[in-house]
Amino acid sequence: MLTLIAKLLHALNSEDSPRQVAFGIALGMIIGLTPTFTLHNLIILLFACIIRVHLGSVILAFTFFAGLSYLTDPLSSHIGESLLTSAGLQTLWHSLYQSEIFKLAQLHHTLTLGSLLISIILCTPVALFSQWLIARYRIHIKQFIERFKIVQTLKASKFYGIYQKVAGTV
């Protein structure tokens, strides 16, 4: 737990640009909200490795949104069910179902389709919001927080040791 918080702080305080961290969070959110072992997550993981996003943020966001998915799964499943059983979309699904990739991606699964759709829709807003939030944090909040005595006490604690390990500054 301490490691995770340390990672969060490191991400926020690192030299990486807020955009890199924000995109990391957005990709991690997709992996976290959708069923883990799926084809699209493998592709997202590949993106996360190739594109210069903050990997720690990906892992962190995945952990957070995977927990959040217990709350969102019923809604995701319902959206998927509505789409897959919609009379107007039957021709589309029928033609997509002929493709092996469609089935391999398990997009005929209500939860997978619903959660993927939600996470794709949320991807850009989450990325932009995260970027704005990180920028605001670095400008205003970081210095403000460091002035507190408790923060200074914390810096002398075991937790700070872990943080420094994560940051690679020790």
């Binding site: 217990y70 799964d73 019923p74 995701s76 499943s77 319902h78 998927g80 069910e81 897959l84 059983t85 039957q90 699904w93 029928h94 179902y97 002929q98 398990q106 005929h108 699964h109 209500t110 939860l111 997978t112 619903g114």
Partner: peptide, 13 residues
């Protein structure tokens, strides 16, 4: 179970 979802199958050619 709504949290699990289900597979919906279509006719194959």
């Amino acid at each position: 179970d709504p949290s699990q979802g289900r597979y919906i199958h279509f006719d194959l050619d």
